[in-house]
Amino acid sequence: MRIVLTSALTGLAVGPAVLAGPALAAELAVAIEIPRLDVSEYHRPYVAAWLEGPGGAVTNLAVWYEQAKRDGEGTKWLKDMRTWWRKSGRDLAMPVDGVSGATKAPGTHRLAFAGDAKPTAGLAPGAYTLVVEAAREVGGREVVRVPFAWPPTAPAGGQARGEAELGTVSLDLKP
């Protein structure tokens, strides 16, 4: 289950660890900042967020694109998120329930995933990278990466900052 919060992450219920072990109970939260840009023609970026795990396995967290356009015209530009398209997007039939959503306005957008539900419930232990890619019509493209270990044994996190199309991308993990 994905919970989108527009402000701070609060009050997330975390399941009891005794039932399913620490990996299942762990919580993963992502904050993605879409910068406000001073450009003459602005379109909200397409954004994909995913986890790359051991062996390159991809777990999609979110794909924001123009879903509302008629005849699915918005899917024409999904390939502009080139890294995501090659690693996962081209294998998917959009929209993907629980993953795809509409494009977002500038600001910080938060995603939280409880460990006992998809997609984090299925994550094998190992070294992972949170990858966020943004591609903007008549603008640029940027990929930001935050490495982490799963499952967390203590509260952990990390962040990285994009230079143009993405602001701060941060990750918070709770055992």
Binding site: G72, T75, K76, W77, L78, K79, R82, W85, R86, G89
Partner: peptide, 8 residues
């Protein structure tokens, strides 16, 4: 060379 969205 790489297209998305079907019917292109």
């Amino acid at each position: 060379t790489v297209l998305s969205g079907g019917d292109q």
